[in-house]
């Protein structure tokens, strides 16, 4: 448990699961949840590097805090967009939002 690689792999698994969710889910809120997972995977990496490699332990924590802030902003904006889209399409299925079809 005290090895960097373990944390990195855990982070990678979280990130990839999140990615998978983003790619697969049709529910926009589900995609948002998956994005949160990806962000957490990245956070875990930051904290792991901070713990095992970094010269200054405060910096990694600060970066993680910032990521959390960004995540909060992203969630707020994302949810509001989803609500707007729902009003517009009466659905939160991304596959219905295909105005870009070629």
């Amino acid at each position: 448990m005290n090895s960097l690689t373990v944390y990195l792999v855990v982070g990678a698994v979280l990130f990839s699961l999140g990615l998978f969710g983003v790619l697969m889910r049709r529910n926009l809120i589900g995609m948002l949840i998956s994005i949160e997972l990806m962000l957490n995977g990245a956070n875990l990496n930051f904290m792991a590097f901070n713990r095992f490699l970094a010269p200054e332990p405060a910096v990694g924590q600060i970066v993680t805090l910032f990521v959390m802030g960004i995540a909060a902003a992203e969630a707020a904006i994302g949810l509001s967009i989803i609500l707007a889209l729902f009003r517009y399409l009466h659905s939160i299925n991304v596959e219905r939002a295909r105005r870009l079809e070629g």
């Binding site: 809120i29 948002l32 949160e36 957490n40 993680t64 959390m68 969630a75 949810l79």
Partner: peptide, 25 residues
């Protein structure tokens, strides 16, 4: 950071998502 995680993510973001779910279909 662990406390912050609980506070921001679990406390704020998840609650926001739940609200969004309630407002959607």
């Amino acid at each position: 950071l662990a406390l912050m995680q609980l506070l921001i993510y679990v406390g704020a973001i998840c609650v926001a998502i739940v609200f969004a779910i309630m407002l959607s279909p």
